[in-house]
Amino acid sequence: MCLVLALHFGEAAVSCNTVIADLYPCLSYVAQGGNVPDSCCNGIRTLNGQAQTSVDRQGVCRCIKSAIGGVSFSSSNLNNALSLPAKCGVNLPYRISPNTNCDR
């Protein structure tokens, strides 16, 4: 029983599906700029609130990297993604970027 609990607590509590669903409303802003949708900021706040442990934050970071890693972004798209936390008033412990080191 202790082993099962130890394994459970070592896993990220936030799934990649949750990360993608919460950040989906941000795609229009990342692609085109303009105003950040309220639903995007709500998703970022939700993810930040759910990822309380280092394991959770690293898992969310890896999901973001995985989701954007296979897509070609222009520099303006990357700048839009990087600006999201500040525009939403959220202090994330990592950058929304394909170059982020999620292990730190």
Rank of each mutant, 00 (worst) to 15 (best):
M1H: 14
C2L: 12
C2H: 12
L3I: 10
V4H: 13
L5E: 07
L5C: 13
L5K: 09
H8C: 10
G10R: 13
G10P: 04
E11Y: 11
A12T: 10
V14M: 08
S15D: 00
N17T: 07
T18I: 06
T18M: 05
V19A: 03
I20C: 01
D22W: 00
L23T: 04
L23E: 00
Y24N: 10
C26I: 05
L27I: 13
S28T: 14
A31V: 14
A31M: 14
Q32H: 15
G33M: 11
G33L: 12
G33N: 13
P37Q: 06
D38S: 10
D38I: 07
S39P: 04
C40F: 02
C41A: 04
I44R: 03
R45F: 02
R45S: 09
T46Q: 09
L47E: 00
N48P: 01
N48Q: 08
G49K: 09
S54E: 11
V55F: 02
D56E: 10
R57G: 06
Q58R: 14
Q58L: 06
Q58I: 02
G59V: 01
C61A: 06
C61W: 05
R62G: 01
K65T: 07
K65A: 07
K65Q: 14
S66L: 11
A67G: 12
G69S: 10
G69F: 07
G70K: 07
S72P: 14
S72Y: 12
S72V: 10
S72A: 07
F73S: 06
S74Q: 09
S76I: 13
N77F: 11
L78M: 14
L78Q: 13
L78C: 09
L78P: 02
N79P: 07
N80M: 06
N80L: 04
L82T: 10
S83L: 04
G89P: 12
V90H: 05
N91K: 10
N91D: 12
L92D: 01
P93K: 10
P93G: 05
Y94C: 04
Y94T: 05
S97K: 03
S97N: 11
P98F: 08
N101H: 06
